[in-house]
Amino acid sequence: MGTTNQKAFRIRILQALRDLGGTGSKQQTLQRIEDLYGHELTDEDWLPCRTRPEPLWHNRAAWERSDMVRDGLLDARSPRNMWALTEAGYSAVTAD
């Protein structure tokens, strides 16, 4: 079955942050994603990451967050471990 594609986390991050009022800690955001989509994650997604003490899907979501900052959907100026939607991010999540 494999792991969930990194790009699949984009809409999940957008929706989780929308639900959190537009901003949340990394942990709050990942917990909201798990609450909403945990049942869709594969067994492989839950395996531990080789470089960090967290499930693989946390690492994939964090890499997607980095791409979303580059694409202007999340605020690059947010404090460490805080994820926040930009206006473009709000527009992207409400367009869905």
Rank of each mutant, 00 (worst) to 15 (best):
R70W: 00
C49G: 05
L73H: 10
A8C: 02
D75R: 10
G21S: 01
I13W: 05
L56E: 07
P79V: 12
R10F: 02
R12K: 13
E54G: 11
D35N: 11
T94L: 06
R60F: 13
A84R: 15
A92W: 03
A16W: 04
L14G: 13
A16Y: 05
D19Y: 00
T51M: 11
R50K: 10
E44F: 10
S78H: 05
F9M: 04
R18I: 00
Y37C: 00
S91D: 15
T3Y: 12
T3P: 00
T94F: 05
I13M: 05
E44V: 13
A8P: 01
E44P: 00
A84K: 14
D67S: 14
H39Q: 06
A62T: 00
S78G: 03
Q27K: 07
L17G: 15
Q27R: 06
R18S: 10
T23N: 02
H58Y: 12
L47T: 13
I11S: 02
R77K: 11
R60V: 01
T29I: 12
P79D: 14
L20A: 02
G38I: 09
K7H: 08
E40S: 06
N59R: 15
G2R: 03
W83C: 09
P55M: 07
W63K: 08
V69S: 09
D75M: 02
A16F: 02
L85I: 09
G24N: 05
K7P: 04
A62L: 13
D96R: 12
T29C: 15
R80H: 07
G38S: 10
I13H: 03
W63C: 03
D45C: 13
Q28Y: 02
A88H: 12
P48R: 11
A92Y: 07
R52L: 11
N5Q: 06
S78I: 03
G89V: 14
T86W: 10
L73G: 00
T42L: 01
G21C: 02
E87S: 12
E54I: 08
L56N: 06
E64H: 10
G89W: 02
H39K: 08
Q27N: 14
A84G: 06
I13T: 01
L56C: 11
R80M: 06
P48D: 06
N81S: 12
R52K: 03
K26N: 11
L36Y: 11
L85Y: 06
R18H: 09
C49R: 04
V69L: 15
D45A: 05
L20V: 06
L73S: 07
T29V: 14
V69T: 01
G38W: 08
G22K: 01
D35I: 13
L74T: 12
T23Q: 15
A62Y: 00
L36K: 14
R65A: 14
W83G: 01
A8T: 01
E64G: 09
V93I: 15
R65V: 08
L14T: 15
G24C: 05
D19F: 06
T94M: 04
A76W: 09
R32W: 00
